[in-house]
Computed example of a mutant assay.
Amino acid sequence: MTLLASPALARDVAHAEVFTDSNSHYLDYKTSISEAKRELRKDLARANDEADRIDAIAEYEAEIADAEKDFRKEMAERGVVLPKGSVIVEEDVAVFPQ
């Protein structure tokens, strides 16, 4: 049975089954985000110019998108299709290089 999650249903599914630490795929997703943030901080600290900072941010955004894609795919394989915009781990940290 495939579950198509409407926004209201997505909240129910998210809290009850998907976005909990008992879901190993969600834990993997959270770990990927944490690793991407650590790597971004390191890359920005080593950046020598604006181009390096732009590259670091682009790499971070690509890693976040890849982690979300993988998480959505794992959930879809288990019959849970999440609507766009429903996958949120924590508040994003805005990075504005000086």
Results as ranks from 00 to 15, higher is better:
77 E>D: 14
54 I>C: 02
44 L>D: 00
8 A>L: 14
55 D>Q: 08
55 D>T: 02
22 S>N: 08
3 L>C: 15
79 G>F: 02
78 R>P: 08
72 R>E: 05
71 F>L: 08
8 A>M: 12
6 S>I: 09
22 S>G: 11
4 L>C: 01
59 E>L: 12
78 R>V: 02
73 K>Q: 11
21 D>A: 11
56 A>N: 03
75 M>N: 13
82 L>Y: 03
33 I>Q: 14
96 F>M: 07
24 S>K: 13
12 D>H: 10
83 P>G: 01
65 A>H: 07
96 F>D: 10
83 P>L: 03
17 E>D: 13
36 A>G: 04
83 P>E: 03
62 A>L: 10
11 R>E: 06
25 H>D: 15
35 E>K: 12
5 A>Y: 06
49 D>H: 03
37 K>G: 07
72 R>W: 02
96 F>Q: 09
74 E>F: 05
8 A>I: 14
82 L>P: 01
14 A>Y: 13
41 R>W: 02
23 N>H: 09
83 P>M: 02
25 H>I: 01
77 E>L: 14
81 V>H: 06
37 K>M: 14
10 A>W: 03
53 R>G: 04
42 K>E: 12
23 N>W: 13
15 H>A: 13
68 E>N: 00
14 A>H: 07
81 V>N: 05
92 D>T: 05
97 P>W: 02
1 M>L: 06
11 R>A: 05
44 L>T: 03
98 Q>N: 07
20 T>L: 13
49 D>L: 05
49 D>Y: 04
97 P>N: 05
42 K>G: 10
90 E>A: 15
73 K>V: 04
16 A>K: 13
56 A>K: 00
54 I>D: 04
18 V>K: 04
29 Y>D: 09
50 E>A: 11
77 E>P: 00
79 G>M: 00
92 D>R: 15
7 P>R: 09
80 V>P: 01
76 A>D: 06
5 A>Q: 05
97 P>G: 02
9 L>G: 05
97 P>F: 03
94 A>K: 04
58 A>H: 09
36 A>E: 05
86 S>E: 12
60 Y>F: 11
77 E>G: 14
76 A>G: 01
73 K>G: 03
7 P>C: 13
8 A>W: 14
90 E>M: 13
43 D>W: 00
74 E>K: 15
34 S>V: 04
21 D>L: 09
70 D>N: 13
51 A>S: 12
22 S>K: 07
89 V>F: 14
42 K>C: 03
25 H>N: 06
89 V>L: 09
45 A>W: 03
39 E>L: 08
32 S>Q: 11
18 V>D: 08
84 K>E: 15
22 S>F: 09
31 T>E: 15
96 F>H: 07
12 D>S: 12
21 D>Q: 07
24 S>L: 09
58 A>V: 12
9 L>T: 07
12 D>T: 15
66 D>Y: 05
69 K>G: 12
30 K>A: 15
72 R>M: 03
63 E>T: 02
53 R>A: 15
56 A>E: 03
86 S>I: 04
38 R>F: 08
78 R>D: 10
77 E>T: 04
81 V>I: 08
3 L>P: 14
20 T>H: 04
22 S>I: 00
